[in-house]
Design a protein around this nucleic acid. Sequence first.
DNA 1: GTGGTCTAGACCACG
DNA 2: GTGGTCTAGACCACC
Lengths: 125, 125, 125, 125
Amino acid sequence: MIRIDKQSQIPIYEQFIEQVERLVLSGFFSEDEPLPSVRALSQTLSVNPNTLQKAYAELERKGLCYTVPGTGRMLSADARRIALSEQRKELEQIERLSKQMAQAGIPIGDVLAAVEKAYEGGANK
Amino acid sequence: MIRIDKQSQIPIYEQFIEQVERLVLSGFFSEDEPLPSVRALSQTLSVNPNTLQKAYAELERKGLCYTVPGTGRMLSADARRIALSEQRKELEQIERLSKQMAQAGIPIGDVLAAVEKAYEGGANK
Amino acid sequence: MIRIDKQSQIPIYEQFIEQVERLVLSGFFSEDEPLPSVRALSQTLSVNPNTLQKAYAELERKGLCYTVPGTGRMLSADARRIALSEQRKELEQIERLSKQMAQAGIPIGDVLAAVEKAYEGGANK
Amino acid sequence: MIRIDKQSQIPIYEQFIEQVERLVLSGFFSEDEPLPSVRALSQTLSVNPNTLQKAYAELERKGLCYTVPGTGRMLSADARRIALSEQRKELEQIERLSKQMAQAGIPIGDVLAAVEKAYEGGANK
DNA sequence: GTGGTCTAGACCACG
DNA sequence: GTGGTCTAGACCACC
């Protein structure tokens, strides 16, 4: 369910983090069983374990999950809340970019159209 | 009029390019006199000349300006048109982020509101 | 009376050992009846039996208890003395941390106050 | 000025972090020049660059320093304040351990003596 | 089996 | 020169 684009400019560990956060919001992960292990993911995604380790460490730092020694990583109680707030942070990026568009004199209609286009695209997928 | 944030994650030369493009659109630069020299900028911005050289080279590559030996760098005839099209490229980023918002289940209204908020803010400035 | 925090960084078997030692000192365990069995604890604490086995083995190694075949694990005669000496070992940790405080320039009064505060808090409990 | 004990149970990157925080408090680092580079430290300390990278990343996350691309890591404006608050966190550990001592019936005098011993030792060094 | 740490060595972007 | 990312492979503790 997770897909990594190794050609992307975005670092692998960031791609992974974003996708896990989205899967948490979609309820894909059960709260009773551990998240997929570093080793398992390393094979299925063909990504080095260290890279995934780094990504999981970051998710843990955010409080989205925690480690049970010898067992694996479990979603924390407020994983959904945290994932949601992370997603909201990206709204701020949109706002920041929109401000640049405004300064550059791009009409607001063009920006709104881009957003709507993105949402329609998602609907058709 | 150009400000570089050395604490920013964004590379200095990119910050510089973006700001020059925006200043072109705002009509800040006259078409009759050369753009500020690398040497002068290096002092006022406390930035390595090599970095500014690289940024100007990129702007020349885009066709936004050209070098007149012995005089300096002049804005090209269609500098405004080029700067505008560069800014439009950032619309794609907004589109990409919007797609993520859509996948994460954030209502489109929230995204549109963020854009409008950004444009209102710019109006007051 | 024993509580395991699976979210803690401290390994489960260490948490268990520490708490047993403290319960011994507090006189919670009778010397006439066996300590709770691995099987019973495994259920009440939701902990892997292997983990408890390891913890009990360590306590036996320290001489705090011993196994009576067919009956269970009994506290040894000098269980209290051993538990006490184990607790004293943690004084070394306090000493190590205090040295760091000293090097960092934290006034000794602050450290002493922290210790006293901890003892007062325990008194009220 | 930094010394790593590879035999210690404490991870190298944690030892490094603690020592940097202490050196910040002692005013050892200048605010005008970058902190020692990962590569330089790797040689002088005989520690893998990745390990130091990880340590520095953590210090950056705490807000103690920041990266200037192509230049190095600079102390942030409130590095001292942050380092101080980090040190204070260790006081809480002492408090937590002291509570355990209290519960175990260790007389408070023993704990206070350990603290004082640590401070005297530091003075003689 | 799980995660945590470390080493060695490589490539890239930035200044 | 600087940091950032990634790979490969190893060892350890814990369960």
